[in-house]
Design a protein around this nucleic acid. Structure first.
Lengths: 220, 220
DNA sequence: GTTTGAATCAAACGATCGTTTGAGAGTACG
DNA sequence: CGTACTCTCAAACGATCGTTTGATTCAAAC
């Protein structure tokens, strides 16, 4: 059971399926990408998906688990390096939150596609998927919220979550490169994301530092 | 040709289809919602979609056109009331951008669902849909970018577009209520959106006012 | 050599998809 | 009346969907 009889010279069947599924889910969505597309791109038999994963839904969960576990641990590790100190800057915490996602998008072999899959997940109302993401993502968000609350004592806990939610949405949006604005064709995709991350950190820091107000901000 | 022989006492077949499609596209996505679901919810015959709209893709475009035309004109009208004056506040321009979307989400009869459809569109890589949205949305964004550039003379034009892109992503995300954070069950959906919009305006104003910098904002 | 079990394969399952068809119902106009 | 035209309807089209089946292949265990 240690080595597969077939295709031992290449990546395993399971990994080839996961990679192909990741890329196709990013492009066509979960409902839009068929298992026949996935298995054809992975150059495996159609039945291999149900054999190795059980169902399409389980395959989707595995696509997330493979990347999300590492993304979460990297975020928490980065947070641990800057959190709780006297000279902790807000930008450092934001960087710990954003940078791992950016790094993930630069990994060869599908990481770039995964951030798009992540953006898909936010748009999906699939309750099973949402629960899965909340279980694997919620505790990370709570950790960051705690540190942000320490750095921004003037903001209520609920206010912190509100703003973090906006930051997460903007991050997901920017990372996935789903903007209306067309980037210049001579700018590579990863440079585009790097620039977006730098803008986002400055943007988010300013938004989080904004003092809480009681009156309506604008009424024309 | 002026009046339909059937169902004249109710909303027309076309409008019932559009309403049902809007709600189902918001919940299940464009690929995930079938025409049989749509026509069943609209209580019309299955063939009515292809008869009145030609195809499923054309139906999707019509779902957008129906709301987007009014959203765009309302945004431009609101912008026209505050733009170009000496005492124009940044929050006023942001309000002109965000408030029409919020108002749309409060309209009875499907407007709330449309903001979710809009978020779906951002996540879709469908090239036809992206081109359609860019044609109906690009000129509005350019108008707002021009006014933001006037109010923020220290920012380069490209920087304005970068930040507006983030604002649009965060707005779409917040309006569609796709956050991980669960809102309290006793908070109604429209109140949730109203609060989100107020936070977003303050958040975006602070982010846009943030002076442009040349050095990297954070590196741990 | 025989057995065992995991992995792959072609083929087909029933279900559902978007779309089309042709008949028929209803209204307006002559 | 008859003709014309719009709209609705049940039914079916071929294609594709996720999933299952049963045979086959290969490596390891005995």
């Amino acid at each position: 059971m240690t080595s597969a009889p077939y295709a031992s010279r290449e990546r395993s069947t399971k990994e080839r399926i996961l990679g192909a599924a990741e890329a196709l889910f990013a492009t066509h969505g979960f409902a839009g990408a068929s298992l026949r597309q996935v298995t054809a791109a992975a150059r495996v038999n159609l039945a291999a998906v149900n054999y190795h994963f059980g169902s399409k839904d389980k395959l989707i969960e595995e696509v997330f688990r493979r990347r999300l576990d590492e993304l979460n641990s990297r975020r928490l590790a980065a947070l641990g390096k800057v959190a709780g100190k006297d000279d902790t800057r807000l930008e450092d915490v934001l960087d710990a939150y954003i940078r791992p996602a950016l790094d993930l998008s630069r990994v060869d072999g599908g990481g770039a596609a995964f951030v798009r899959v992540l953006a898909r997940a936010y748009a999906e109302h699939n309750e099973t998927l949402r629960r899965f993401l909340s279980e694997n993502y919620g505790h990370v968000l709570r950790q960051f919220a705690g540190e942000f609350g320490r750095l921004l004592p003037g903001l209520a806990k609920e206010e912190i979550y509100w703003r973090l939610d906006i930051v997460t949405g903007a991050l997901t949006y920017a990372m996935a490169d789903f903007g209306i604005i067309q980037r210049k064709s001579d700018v590579a995709e990863r440079d585009h994301r790097e620039t977006a991350a730098e803008h986002l950190i400055r943007f988010a820091a300013a938004g989080l530092r904004n003092p809480s107000v009681s009156n309506s901000p604008a009424s024309h």
